[in-house]
Write a protein that binds this DNA or RNA. Structure first.
Lengths: 194, 194
DNA sequence: CGTCTATTTGAATGTACTCAAAAGCGGTGG
DNA sequence: CCACCGCTTTTGAGTACATTCAAATAGACG
């Protein structure tokens, strides 16, 4: 608890007044394990910053298969930005996988903050910019790397994900089946021995 | 020529003064067929808005295979945002496929515009936000759809791409080989007859 | 008309998936 | 402390989607 303001201050310097305005436009909320922050077909009304806990963002395809789009842990933002910005039904679900505390900024408050505190618009431009660059990297990797190499890269870049989320979710995040990830790990273990 | 200001004004309303500042911070530039706007390993110094022409953004993997990350036609922005924001060497190449006229905003000018004309920061937040949502959609589709369905969706959503870019580039953009796309098209043609 | 590039065709191969079943693991209650 | 339950991971066989390589064909341009 209270990772939020320090996080914001990593990007910009807020005056006491600005900080007060920001404080007035956020809400703290707690979720239990299994609860949904965003639900498919409902409008995503806020963007959520994780103070503690962990969540997964997933999507159900037309055959009913789950695909994990993103993980969220402490100091990550989660939500369905597509739904948030157009205030139309969400494609994604955001579900808590343990007791999770978040800071939420509702759509209307976010618009007001953009208007009254231009620095906040700066922060969100930066956050989205980074998210966009990551998304592009992921597209490129899904193109040009095998499942095995994508797994190795995830291990290297986000070991926390591999540690904190069950293997079948890691598989889904990588775009492969849990069985295939199991095979890959088996093979990697054999190689490590020799 | 002169799609740029109307495009900006679709997002926001600039005062004459602001418009003048914007004008003072952009440059027009022409490229010939085959020339590069951004080159791998060089720092991307500006973001480019296409007035006319067409470009492809691609990436060379470690085996030397090309992967097309994006197409650009009139009224699209192109560049390597990852490189631009960190002023570090680019991963991507942006190459003109015909005579192409662009409006360019250099890194330093962009920072100045963000500082002096907050509305410009708004525009870029919106542009990047939309780009991010599109990138996420692409990730989801590459997960959950077959090559055939991805091709059909591209035909539906961006027919201009399929018309204006050669088939082997479309294949690369979809993440498949040109031979396989040829097969898919062949099969679709057969189905259309019966 | 010839040359260069883009597209098509086909056969063999590979990467990853599906389905079914077994094994492992953690918590709960007897 | 052990037995049982539910959930996650592993194993294996058969299959599907997409690739590779080689060669033929079609199109575009001078």
């Amino acid at each position: 608890m209270d990772r939020f303001l320090p996080y914001i201050n990593k990007h910009i310097q807020l005056t006491p007044t600005e900080e007060a305005i920001l404080q007035a436009n956020i809400k703290y909320k707690n979720y239990l394990k299994g609860q949904y922050i965003v639900q498919n077909d409902e409008i995503c009304r806020c963007h959520s910053f994780i103070e503690s806990g962990k969540v997964r963002t997933f999507y159900l395809d037309k055959n009913g298969n789950e695909h994990i789009v993103a993980f969220g842990i402490e100091e990550w933002w989660v939500g369905d930005i597509g739904s948030l910005i157009t205030q139309s039904p969400a494609d994604f679900n955001v579900q808590c996988l343990e007791k999770t505390q978040v800071v939420q900024i509702y759509y209307e408050n976010l618009q007001r903050l953009y208007r009254d505190v231009p620095k906040i618009e700066r922060v969100f431009r930066l956050i989205i910019q980074n998210a966009y660059v990551s998304a592009q990297k992921r597209i490129v990797r899904n193109f040009s790397l095998t499942a095995r190499d994508r797994y190795l890269l995830l291990l290297e870049e986000y070991p926390a994900f591999v540690q904190r989320f069950p293997q079948y979710m890691i598989a889904s995040y990588l775009g492969i089946t849990k069985e295939f990830l199991s095979q890959i790990r088996n093979q990697l273990a054999k190689e490590a021995k020799s």
